[in-house]
Design a protein around this nucleic acid. Structure first.
Lengths: 155, 155
DNA sequence: CCTGAAATATCTAAAAG
DNA sequence: CTTTTAGATATTTCAGG
């Protein structure tokens, strides 16, 4: 799974705009269209490119409230943690979820329509699990950065 | 900026796979290719679709450490906060950054190669700003959920 | 590995109902 | 809104260096 500078340039360009024609990509990196096509297929096959996705404007869909939540659990029992993680991941309004080491156990990022929806989700996800000791809510006043791209710099 | 069920279905499909041919989209939602084309153009023009992007596998690029950081600032002066936000947003390893109300002022999600890179970035971003009072590091043991899509359900 | 050309598929716009 | 048409663009394969 080695990535040469051509691959990295292609990946950077595709993160920026996945619709760039392969011919245009070829011009940018000085490769033929066919070479670009072959590389992209390989990158997708190896799983370096996971998928192509449309990024939507949350506000246009009525989702304009982001909330960061820190969760502390009662028990670290593996089966309980697994169940929690599954329920978190299954919630469409949970945009990110991390199981972390430190002052708390989980950090979740919610994207919700309004506070009412947020409260309803906390009741559903946290109280029904019977394993949440406490959770702390941080309401985002400003989404300074979202939808960032993965750095493609060489090691 | 009204979205009917057709639009929502198209948006959901495009978040899942931005490369789905418009003919296939049309079959899925029972619309002609031409109708799909028209709707997609309108959705892009209105800014509902912000961009098309390739989602990469961070591990394949040598980025496999996610760190959540909570930052408290010394001063809430607007010009200082603006400057901090700009420097945070400009850092490629900062995947998300939120200015929040609650126990801390900023929450950042870093995607880094290793701890060494993380420490170097904190020095650069936090110490050089001269406005960070404290910061708390939460290392992700498991990325339970990332790269989620925006819910497209109707209000 | 690459290039360049040919074949296939897709997109886009226009015309007409 | 639909379908159909036609031409432009993009993708993919293949021959050959």
């Amino acid at each position: 799974m080695k990535l040469d500078p051509y691959d990295r340039a292609l990946l950077a360009a595709l993160q920026d705009d996945a619709r760039t024609p392969q011919s245009a990509l070829g011009e940018q990196v000085s490769l033929s269209t066919a070479a670009v096509n072959r590389r992209l297929k390989a990158l997708a096959g190896e799983g370096v490119i996971e998928r192509f996705s449309a990024q939507l404007n949350p506000k246009a869909l009525g989702y304009d409230l982001t909330v960061v939540v820190e969760v502390k659990v009662e028990s670290e029992r593996a089966d309980l943690l697994d169940q929690m993680q599954r329920s978190f991941a299954a919630c469409p309004q949970v945009q990110q979820c991390y199981y972390v080491a430190g002052d708390c156990d989980f950090v979740l990022i919610f994207l919700v329509r309004d506070m009412e929806q947020y409260v309803a989700l906390t009741r559903k996800l946290f109280f029904e699990s019977h394993n949440v000791k406490t959770f702390k809510t941080l309401v985002a006043m400003n989404r300074v950065k979202t939808g960032a791209t993965v750095p493609v710099d060489a090691a």
